[in-house]
Computed example of a mutant assay.
Amino acid sequence: MLYVMTLEWQPGLSREERDGALARRAGWTYPPGLTVEGEYWLGAENPAVVIVFQAESFTPIMEVSLAWGDKFKITAYPAVTAAEGLAAGAEALGRRVA
């Protein structure tokens, strides 16, 4: 299943702690069972990072949260592509009773 994850800086982190997160990211790898389609570092305070990924279970999502929860508030959302959303919407509208 497709997901979008947003990471917002935890409040009160020092500049050194934020810089340390960058160094930590350089040596960190995603857990098994999570396939990244894109990782984006935004030019904004929050969210700071957006990750688009596939996961077959909750386990790797929880592992990311455990690994990075000290630096980021992490939220994961189920998602679909625009084409999938349009198809699902048309199907749902076709079943809707007025």
Rank of each mutant, 00 (worst) to 15 (best):
M1E: 12
M1R: 13
M5P: 00
W9V: 07
Q10N: 02
G12Y: 15
R15I: 13
E16K: 11
R18N: 09
D19V: 13
D19A: 14
A21S: 11
L22F: 09
R24P: 07
A26V: 08
A26K: 13
W28S: 01
W28C: 02
T29E: 15
P31Y: 12
G33M: 07
V36H: 08
E37Q: 01
E37A: 00
G38V: 01
G38Y: 03
E39F: 12
E39I: 12
L42N: 06
G43N: 09
V50S: 04
E56S: 14
E56W: 11
I61N: 02
E63G: 06
E63M: 11
E63S: 12
V64N: 08
A67L: 03
G69E: 05
G69F: 04
D70W: 04
D70M: 01
K73G: 00
K73A: 03
T75Y: 02
T75K: 04
A76R: 03
Y77E: 00
P78N: 07
A79N: 01
T81Q: 06
A82N: 06
A82V: 13
A83M: 03
G85H: 10
G85W: 08
G85N: 11
L86D: 04
L86F: 10
A87S: 06
A88H: 04
G89W: 12
E91L: 02
E91N: 02
R96P: 01
V97D: 07
